[in-house]
Amino acid sequence: MSALEDAGRDPESSPAVVELSDVTFGYTSAPVVEDISLRIDAGEYVAVVGPNGSGKSTLMKLMLGLLHPDEGAASLFGESSRRFDDGARIGYVAQHASAAKEMPITVREVVKMGRFPHVGFGRLSAADWAIVDDALETVGMTAFADRRVTQLSGGQRQRAFIARALASEADLLVLDEPTVGVDVESVEAFYDLLASLNDDGITVLLIEHDLGAVTEHAERVVCLNREIYFDGPTAEFVESDALGRAFGTAASFLGGSR
């Protein structure tokens, strides 16, 4: 894997950030994902793609420990996902639409939540607030800190959620179709931000429907439709026929977009 070589890491010595071994899972008796083996190492920028209903979200939940495999094993940072309890290490950014509640809450209050896993029932200390301010600055949202979230554009809102992950000092950033409903100009800036965070060593896992964004930004692509159809460098994915097999007729979409 080229990403690993670039980072100069030996996969055997440091535990994988996420590892699935022969994982099968179904909400009913029919499996939604089947026989998935996948390893994501620190510092990678991976995109999971697949058509609607391909099990992308389910796979993401299995990787995050929100669901547990019926068969096989899942681990996070080297620990079984059932026992894993250091949630602060994972930052989760949901779809724009699902975060669009009409709740009155400021950007700073959202970012502050990143400190909750660290402070528990307590109050944020001055040091915690400093971390919150740094996170706001990193994503360029300092000027919007006291704005109500519902007042922001889609792109700004997603930045606020990334800041929350940074405030939590997460080293794995998981984004579930983050640019759905976000305007085109903001999307570019959003991916630039992800790339710069990845350069700083944060592992990025992108669950995406938009193939154009994936092929342009991710280093590695995992193509899913119940099973893994492809797992490798993005350049090879573009050349392969995995897309056609996984997506069926929708494949021509990629040719059209890039």
Partner: peptide
């Protein structure tokens, strides 16, 4: 008063709250 942080997190973003370990 004791669980305000947790109640807020779960209310605002249930999945992220679960991921964070709540």
């Amino acid at each position: 008063a004791v669980t305000r942080n947790q109640l807020l997190y779960v209310t605002f973003d249930e999945t992220a709250a679960a991921v964070s370990g709540l």
